[in-house]
């Protein structure tokens, strides 16, 4: 199946060799309910791929399938093929190693019940970094990159959950960066964050793009417009189309529903 086949679209074949992640014919079910139907899409290296669409369109399910988090959701079934750097993620023998290369930022900040420092040091510790100086260095670097260092450098030993909402969300971004991921998945990260902090995080993401691929699931159409190189539109489990962000927002769409959604006529 060649979905939405356009040169700059989501066609799997065009990107087969160079893409970071290639998704082919992905269907996700929860029991009888189909959350995502026959998705073909690729995520390129060093791009921000925006995914927009109203609630219930399968965006979050897609993210879950990318790092095999479906294994923790009872009843969630995934069919189809996803390759990460050419490897079928269903067939990797160490799923933990795969997940450790994929950073995830959830809609509501999940500060683990640890100190600010330990939140960021956890992933390095898990992969075997023991030396205090090395951990200090990683923690400071990740917090700086998440634009949080200046605010928390004097309270690294206080609980992460005592930070403000916006700070906590930047802490989870720092934590995701501490994994040194190649792929960063953001699921509506700005839901619980004030506009000023959102802008700061957006600036961070623009920088991070040079080092990794980023998938940005968002409810805010304008956020995709500001950040994404390409934008995919999902609607009730259907992948309507993927196109260059500039094209989509200048009205060059293959499906009129995309245009209607962007213009705010529904959703």
């Amino acid at each position: 199946m060649v979905a939405g086949a356009a040169p700059d679209g989501g066609g799997a074949s065009a990107d087969a060799l160079s893409a970071k992640v290639v998704v082919q014919n992905l269907t996700i079910r929860y029991g009888k309910h189909v959350a995502l139907r026959g998705l073909d899409l690729s995520i390129r290296r060093n791009e921000i791929l925006g995914i927009i669409g109203p609630a219930g369109s399968g965006k979050t399910s897609f993210l879950r399938a990318l790092n095999r988090m479906d294994e923790f959701i009872p009843g969630m079934e995934v069919e189809g093929r996803i390759t990460f750097d050419g490897r079928d993620i269903r067939r990797v023998r160490n799923v933990y190693a795969l997940r450790s290369r994929i950073g995830v930022v959830f809609p509501l900040p999940v500060g683990l019940p640890l100190t600010v420092y330990e939140n960021v040091a956890l992933a390095p510790r898990l992969r075997g970094v023991r030396k205090g100086s090395e951990l200090d260095e990683i923690v400071e670097r990740c917090l700086r990159r998440a634009a949080l260092w200046e605010e928390v450098k004097d309270r690294l030993d206080s609980l992460g959950s005592l930070l403000s909402g916006g700070q906590q969300q930047r802490l989870t971004i720092a934590r995701a960066l501490s994994q040194e991921p190649d792929l960063l998945l953001l699921d509506e990260f700005s839901i619980a964050v004030d506009p000023v902090t959102t802008m700061r995080i957006e600036d961070v993401l623009k920088d991070l793009k040079n080092e990794m691929s980023i998938v940005l699931v968002t409810n805010l159409v304008q956020q995709a417009r500001r950040l994404a190189d390409r934008t995919a539109f999902f609607l009730t489990g259907e992948h309507v189309e993927t196109s260059g962000t500039a094209r989509i927002f200048s009205g060059i769409v293959k499906d009129p529903r995309t245009h209607d959604y962007i213009e705010g006529r529904f959703g």
Partner: peptide
């Protein structure tokens, strides 16, 4: 959420 977040880190 704690478990999910830690699992997502590759734990």
């Amino acid at each position: 959420g704690y478990r999910e977040a830690a699992e997502a880190l590759g734990a």
